[in-house]
Amino acid sequence: MNFYEKAGKKAIGSRLRLLSDRITEDAGQLYALYGTNLQPKWFPVFYALSQGQEKTITAIAEEIRHSHPSVSKIIAEMARQEYVVEAKDQTDRRKNVVRLSAKGMAAAEKIETQYLDVGAAVEAISAQTNHDLWKAIGEWEFLLDQKSLLQRVNEQRKLRESSAVTIVDFEPRYGSAFRELNVEWISTYFKMEEADYKSLDNPQGYILDKGGHILVALYHGEPVGVCALIKMEHPDFDYELAKMAVSPKAQGKNIGWLLGQAVLEKARLLGARKVFLESNTLLKPAINLYHKLGFQKITGYPSPYERSNIQMAVTL
């Protein structure tokens, strides 16, 4: 078993790079074999220009999906070898356009036979395989355009780490965590207010004894997140989602999402129709989370908090 078979899919980048290096090495020899003497890394730019239309570097970069500096460097190399020429755009003198030179056009004509043979060779390889690599590459590119590998790996990381998270009902032993986690995040962005002290100093009397609930997120048994469901005496709302806080050391583990889902499910079981919350638009990750949970912006209700500049509600 070779290294890549042992390493498996985690080595996909390295294996693709190895395959690319093998093909690129052959490509360099193919250009020499057919007498075009191009460099493999020039090919996307060369092919884009060989279609006959002069283009700006920006247009080429967008077409071949390379960075602007990368294309600029390739153009400079090709210009030194007299394969391309640059000139002012006739319609916009502020821009430079690039086109193939006479030498470049001759190479474009000469390379057509190379294209035929390379295409036939690739088709022959494909005919001997169980999977069409060219189509698979297209599918991968499409899927990665929708969501990058980085995003997908991070999602898997969150799923794995969230499996170690349990959501439990509040107990007196979690009182200090409820207070400390909230004081930590409030003090990071704002200042503690009177309404904060009321609920954090006496969660039993201010929240629980009035028909509310507090949920605690445990990560490997340690309290790292909290969220309250406060009973409201209001004609429009049944409960308020409040005092959600997650320890900085536990962020990125989907804990806010798990707490939010659990709190709303608790509200449903209690027969709630509508849940209210207040926040501040400075807290963009929190606002995004609330939207993801189904909350929508509302207006017109008084607030006990100076820091509140957005109110939201969700119908269950």
Rank of each mutant, 00 (worst) to 15 (best):
S148E: 09
M232W: 00
A106H: 08
G211S: 01
T281G: 09
M232A: 05
R94S: 12
L277Q: 00
A61M: 03
T91F: 00
A124W: 05
Q29T: 13
Q311M: 10
R22D: 03
S279C: 04
L241P: 03
S70K: 11
G300A: 09
P304D: 06
Q251W: 04
E63Q: 14
E77A: 12
L159C: 11
E5K: 13
L159V: 14
R15L: 09
V168K: 08
E171I: 05
V183W: 07
E77R: 07
K274F: 00
L277R: 01
A242T: 03
A59G: 09
Q151P: 11
A313Q: 05
K41G: 05
D238F: 00
G221M: 07
N154C: 10
L100V: 07
T188G: 06
A76G: 02
K110Q: 11
P172T: 14
A127T: 10
W140N: 14
R17I: 14
K292G: 08
R179N: 07
E193A: 10
L30Q: 07
L143W: 08
G300K: 12
K253P: 15
Q81A: 15
T58D: 12
I207M: 02
V85W: 00
E171C: 04
M192C: 06
M78S: 03
Q29R: 15
N37L: 09
G225Q: 04
V71N: 02
P203D: 07
A242I: 01
K88Q: 08
M244D: 02
I74T: 15
Q151E: 15
D21W: 13
V168C: 06
E161T: 13
A177C: 04
Y115L: 13
P40Y: 00
V85Q: 10
F276H: 05
A124P: 03
K73Y: 09
K198E: 15
S67W: 00
Q81Y: 07
Q90S: 14
E63D: 07
E112C: 04
K292D: 10
N130R: 11
Q296M: 13
Q151I: 08
V226M: 14
D201N: 12
T166P: 08
L133F: 12
K41S: 11
K147F: 02
Y47R: 08
A120S: 07
Y301I: 10
E194G: 10
A120W: 13
M78P: 02
G8R: 01
R273S: 14
F43S: 08
G260V: 11
G211F: 01
P172M: 15
G119P: 02
M1N: 09
G28W: 01
A177H: 01
